[in-house]
C-alpha cells in the first residue's frame, strides 16, 4: 500500500469540470448494466466504447451482440448493433462487413458462444480472414444459463455441471481456442488480455485499439481474448473471484500477444 499524503485543498476546488480526468464515455446509454456486481463484461464494454470514441469511428461501427449474459449489449452501447443467434456472431459479422466494407464490424462473444456452439463460425471466419474484430470474453463458464461447464472450464474447476471439478478423463480438456485461432493464416492480431487490475485494463484497451487499427488497414481478422470472471457462476465474491482468476485461470491462459503480423 502506498503511503498516504494529506493535502488541505478544499474538495470543491478539485471537483470542477475542468479537472475531470476520467468520466463515463458518452457512448454508453443511460441504462444500468444488467451484469452482476464485479463482472468483467462491464469493463470490456467500456474499453470498446472508449476505443471507438478515441478513434472517432463510433458512427461507422456495427457491433454484434452474442447469446449469453451480454445478449443485451446493444442496450448499453450507443452504436449500431445487431443481435446474432447463439455462436453465429462471426457469420453475421461476415455478412455485414462484406456488404458494408467501409464500416468497422466487431463480434462480442462469451466462451460458451464462441468456443462451444459457435466453434465452426469462429474457426472458419478467422480462417477466411474476414476483416472483422472479435472480442472474446472468457470466464470459463456458461454464465447466463446457471454456471454450467464450458469448453474453456479449467481442470478441477467446479461448475454446476462439474460439482466435483472438471475431470479431463470424463469431460475432456479446457479448449485454448485463442491458440487455435492464432495458427490460422487469416488472422493478423491475436492476443489474450485481462481487465481485473488497473494496469491490465490499460493494456487491454491498447490491445482493443490495435485490433481496430488492424481492421482499418484490412489486414484480416483481429482477435482479443479477455480472461474474465463470473462471480455468480463461480460462487465467489467479486474480490475472491479476481484472486481466483489470477491464481488459477492465468496459469492456463497466459496473457500476452499470440500473433502480431505488424501494422503498416
Amino acid at each position: 500500500m502506498a503511503k498516504v499524503k494529506h493535502h488541505n485543498i478544499p474538495l470543491d476546488q478539485i471537483i470542477k469540470p475542468e479537472n475531470i480526468v476520467f468520466k463515463r464515455t458518452k457512448l454508453f446509454t443511460d441504462n444500468v448494466l444488467s451484469y452482476c456486481p464485479g463482472c468483467g463484461h462491464g469493463v470490456a464494454h467500456r474499453l470498446i466504447l472508449e476505443v471507438l470514441e478515441e478513434m472517432g469511428i463510433a458512427d461507422k461501427t456495427i457491433g454484434i451482440a452474442p447469446v449469453g449474459c451480454s445478449v443485451l449489449a446493444y442496450e448499453f452501447m450507443d452504436i449500431d448493433m445487431q443481435e446474432a443467434a447463439h455462436g453465429r456472431a462471426p457469420a453475421l459479422a461476415t455478412g455485414i462487413k462484406r456488404t458494408n466494407p467501409d464500416k468497422f464490424v466487431f463480434a462480442y462473444q462469451g466462451d460458451g458462444d464462441l468456443a462451444a456452439i459457435g466453434t465452426a463460425e469462429t474457426i472458419h471466419t478467422a480462417n477466411r480472414g474476414e476483416n472483422i474484430t472479435v472480442i472474446f470474453i472468457n470466464n470459463g463458464i456458461y454464465g447466463m444459463t446457471g454456471g454450467q461447464m464450458a469448453p474453456t472450464t479449467i481442470y478441477g474447476m467446479k461448475t454446476s455441471t462439474t460439482p466435483y471439478g472438471r475431470d479431463p478423463k470424463q469431460m475432456g480438456h479446457p479448449l485454448k481456442i485463442t491458440e487455435i485461432v492464432a495458427q490460422l493464416p487469416g488472422t493478423c492480431y491475436v492476443t489474450r488480455q485481462a481487465v481485473h487490475t488497473p494496469a491490465l485494463v490499460r493494456k487491454a484497451k491498447k490491445a482493443i485499439r490495435k485490433a481496430f487499427e488492424y481492421q482499418k488497414q484490412n489486414k484480416g481478422l483481429s482477435f482479443v481474448e479477455i480472461v474474465s470472471n463470473c462471480n455468480s457462476g463461480w460462487k465467489m465474491t467479486p474480490v475472491q473471484a479476481v484472486k481466483w482468476l489470477e491464481e488459477n485461470m492465468l496459469p492456463y491462459y497466459p496473457l500476452g500477444d499470440l500473433k502480431d503480423i505488424g501494422l503498416d
Binding site: 478539485i14 476520467f22 463515463r24 464515455t25 448494466l33 462491464g42 481487465v195 488497473p198
Partner: peptide, 18 residues
C-alpha cells in the same frame, strides 16, 4: 486522482478529478 478505481469499475460509476 490516479484513476485506478475508475479503471476497474465494471459499472463506470466513478468520475475522477485531478
Amino acid at each position: 486522482g490516479c484513476e485506478n478505481c475508475a479503471l476497474v469499475c465494471p459499472d463506470t460509476v466513478i468520475t475522477v478529478y485531478r
